[in-house]
Amino acid sequence: MGNFAKWLGAGLGFSVGGPIGSILGFVVGSFIDGFTKEDVENARTYRTTHSNVQSGDFEISLLLLSAVVIKADGKIDQRELAYVREHFKRMYGEQRASNAFKLFNGFIKNNNISTRQVCMQIRQHTTHASRLQLVHFLFGIAKSDGIVNEREVNSIKTIAGYLNISNYDFESIKAMFYNSSDSSYKILEIEKSASNDEVKKAYRKMVKKYHPDKLRHLGEEHLKGAEEKFREVQKAYEHIQNERGM
């Protein structure tokens, strides 16, 4: 069995059925040359004998929603494509990233992806911490060309809503990609008028929410993204501390 079939087998998970399964089938059948029906069956067999399905599910989710955000402003920016490719190379290595991009290119070309249906399926099978990480990754894509435009923000906000991410959580992650006077407060999900005790309480809450251990079930390769969010929370708290002389 080829490397791609093995990789797809590891990533099928909940994606075998539902809207994500339909999209996978369409993309595999339409855009990936040399991929046969036998390869699909072999991939499914491989999946049943290997663990870490949650990591594979998350991987497919990243690819699908990345395609949605990249197309949000009506153009496909090569810098955003490069961001996804490099991110996958850092997380999974050259071969697995290459396999992922075979699917990703198909997702980019597919204009019939139902964001709502895809998100509803993801929501049913992933943890809240995993979905927060998805939103963080999508903002990273949007920022990779130097600016997060309004269409991209609206697209990510729609996705976050479908994923049952609260507006407070959405604004917290969004603030990690902007340099504004109130970004630190938004990251901690508090107002500038908050007392010092409220700031400390908010910091403890956010540390618990964004702690990398919450993504350990996805595998070591996903901890780096979690650590990035965690560092942003720490930087926000330190900024407020210095600003207030706490």
Rank of each mutant, 00 (worst) to 15 (best):
M1I: 10
M1H: 11
K6W: 05
L8M: 13
G9A: 11
G13H: 01
G13L: 01
G13C: 02
S15N: 15
I23Y: 10
L24R: 06
V27M: 02
F31R: 09
F35V: 14
K37T: 07
K37H: 05
E41R: 13
N42D: 12
Y46D: 09
T48C: 02
T49Q: 12
H50R: 13
H50F: 04
N52G: 05
V53C: 02
V53F: 01
Q54H: 06
S55D: 06
D57E: 14
F58R: 04
S61D: 06
L62H: 01
L63E: 03
L65V: 01
S66G: 08
A67E: 05
A67I: 05
V68N: 02
I70P: 00
K71S: 14
K75E: 15
D77H: 05
R79C: 00
E80K: 12
L81W: 05
A82S: 15
E86D: 12
H87I: 02
H87N: 09
K89C: 04
Y92C: 00
Y92E: 06
A97I: 08
A100Q: 03
K102A: 14
N105A: 10
F107Y: 11
K109L: 15
N110I: 02
N110L: 10
N112E: 08
N112T: 08
I113M: 06
I113G: 03
Q117L: 11
V118A: 11
V118Y: 03
Q121T: 01
R123G: 00
Q124W: 00
Q124I: 00
H125R: 03
Q133F: 00
L134A: 01
F137C: 00
D145A: 08
G146A: 07
I147N: 12
E150C: 00
S155N: 01
S155V: 03
K157Y: 12
K157T: 04
Y162S: 00
N164V: 00
I165Y: 03
N167H: 00
Y168R: 07
Y168H: 12
F170W: 09
E171M: 12
E171T: 13
I173A: 10
I173G: 05
I173W: 06
N179F: 09
N179W: 04
S180P: 00
D182N: 14
S183N: 06
E189H: 10
I190A: 04
S193L: 09
V199T: 02
K205R: 15
V207E: 11
K208T: 13
H211Q: 10
D213T: 06
R216D: 14
H217M: 07
H217Q: 11
G219F: 07
E220Q: 13
E221S: 15
H222E: 13
H222K: 13
G225H: 12
R231N: 09
E232L: 13
K235Y: 14
K235A: 13
E238W: 04
E238Y: 07
R244L: 12
G245V: 08
